[in-house]
Design a binder for these strands. Structure first.
Lengths: 142, 142
DNA sequence: TTGCATCCGGTACCGGGGTACAGGTTTACC
DNA sequence: GGTAAACCTGTACCCCGGTACCGGATGCAA
């Protein structure tokens, strides 16, 4: 009775109803109960799950990764979970570092009234660490 | 004479040669000189530009945004540049904050030996701030 | 001058993440 | 019991960021 129908869930979570089925196919949302007629009835927690998905996604996780992360805890934990979480953590930390560099760059650019990012960066007329950021890219994920 | 051919540039920047033409079409790379026969000859700075593109891209900027950012400085600055940079900066800062929350979550999960992310997060049995992350998502970009 | 690597433009395709549409059933309310 | 809204499955399509393939035209070196 506390169940949600597709549209309600979709609205509550701010996604398209079609996306729910899509996520279900992709293994991100576990298959919900059905009415006798076959309509999906989601548990209220589904909203939280969706929000998590969206949050994780916005942060650069792919749907597969998210599915993986969620799924693991859903039924039983595969042995590799800790390793994967650890890897993800490293990944996230790297992203934070990169973003920090970009943030600094943007700030510097603004502060310097430097309206011109590339000219600045590659003529080295203002001390923007863009090559540092760019360099970071070389040493990271494929 | 210091010019680079497609393949050289591609290798120097770690991208596919096809991608160069693609970026050119997209306005990310300005049209290079040509040999008499029509082959592209890129200036050495192109490498730096490409690295910047890749760095920015890894950090969640779309090609259009990057084109925009680059283009502006390339010829003449549209009046909106500062505003756009400022907006991007806010965006980046928001991403950093979100990533920080995710990082904390992952750390907490690891530390708690909590192998199960969703169960943990939505049964509130361990004090993981996932809803905080999820909530942040509501207040941000479409 | 011949030969092979490279490049050219054009078009087609791929994977990721959705979204839309078709055509048919179910629900829910009057 | 009728009817409109919501739902169902399935398939097709869209955008993004590339990548691959094509047939033909250079570039360069021996």
């Amino acid at each position: 009775m506390t169940g949600l129908r597709s549209k309600q869930l979709a609205e509550a979570a701010g996604v398209n109803p079609q996306t729910l089925r899509y996520y279900e196919r992709r293994g991100l949302l576990s298959e919900p109960e059905r009415t006798l007629g076959g309509h999906r009835v989601y548990p209220p927690e589904a909203v939280a799950v969706l929000r998590m998905i969206k949050a994780a996604q916005r942060l650069g996780f792919t749907l597969d990764e998210i599915a993986d992360l969620l799924d693991v805890g859903r039924h039983r934990h595969s042995p590799g979970l800790r390793a994967r979480v650890t890897a993800k953590l490293a990944d996230v930390e790297a992203r934070i570092a990169d973003l920090g560099a970009i943030r600094d760059t943007l700030r510097t650019a603004l502060a310097a009234g430097c309206d011109d990012l590339i000219t600045c960066s590659h003529t080295a007329s203002c001390p923007i660490p863009f090559s540092g950021v760019a360099g970071a890219e070389l040493s990271s994920r494929p």
